[in-house]
Nucleic acid binder design. Sequence first.
DNA 1: CTTGGCTACCTACTTATGGTAAGTTATAGC
DNA 2: GCTATAACTTACCATAAGTAGGTAGCCAAG
Lengths: 120, 120
Amino acid sequence: MSTHAAPGQHITSEDSAQALCPRFHRAVELIGRRWTGAIVRVLLGGPRRFNELLAAVPGISDRLLTERLRELEHEELIVRRVEPGSPVKVIYELTCAGAELQEALDALGRWAERWLGLQP
Amino acid sequence: MSTHAAPGQHITSEDSAQALCPRFHRAVELIGRRWTGAIVRVLLGGPRRFNELLAAVPGISDRLLTERLRELEHEELIVRRVEPGSPVKVIYELTCAGAELQEALDALGRWAERWLGLQP
DNA sequence: CTTGGCTACCTACTTATGGTAAGTTATAGC
DNA sequence: GCTATAACTTACCATAAGTAGGTAGCCAAG
C-alpha cells in the first residue's frame, strides 16, 4: 500500500480512500470547524438572531460568526431569514438536516460531561 | 443537560458565558481538530500502528498524524505502546475515555449517511 | 562493508485559516 | 446634525495546517 503517493500526486481510491467513510469525514470536517458545533448547538435551542448567537457563543468574533453561518447555510443546515423593519432582524434557524445533528451533539455532550475535567 | 434554552427563550449577555457548556466546547474543539475524529474512528476498530493509521486516514500527512496522536495521548484518549524488535512497532490504542466516543461518532456517522451527499 | 529499505518520526518552509480592529450601510431617536 | 444599533465588510497579523526533505536504528542484499 503506497500511502504516500509521490510528491504532487493525488491519493486514489485504491489506496485507502475507502478505509474511512468519506461522508463521515466530511461531517467531522464540517461540524468540527472552529465554532460550528457550538453555533449549531445554540440553534438547537430555537431560532436566534445574529447578535444573540454572538452572545451565546463565547469567544467567537463577528467575522467568524458570519463566515460559519454562511457555510452552514451553504450546506443547508441552517436557513437565514431577514425580517425587515426598523433595524432589520436576521434570524437563523436549523433546517431538518441541521436539527438532526442533535443526537450526535448530545452524545458528544454526554461524553464531555463524563470525561472532560474543567481545568484549562 | 441544562445547556439548551427553550425554543424562543432569550439569551442575555449575563448568561452568555455559560450559555454553552464549556466541556462541550472543549470536546468539540478537541475531536473537531482536523483529522482527530477520523483518527479516533479508525482506532475504534482496534489498535493500529503508525503507518496503518497513515494509510487508513486518507489525506493526512505524517507530520500532522504525529501531532494529533501526541495531543490525543496528552488528553488521555489513546495510549502509545512501543514494541521493541527488528523494526520497532509503535501501537496506538484507545483508552476507556477514547472508546466511549464511539456513541457520539456513530451518531455523527449515521447523520452523515443520511444527510450528506458525496459530491465534494 | 557499503547500499538500500523499512519504521517512526523531526525540521524547515509555504499556504490556509483564524483572530482583532476598524469601517460600512441603513434606519431611528434625540 | 449627532449618536446608536444591527448586521455585516475590509484590512491586517498570528496561528495552524500542508509539503518537502532529512534522520536514527536496524536488517538484508550485493
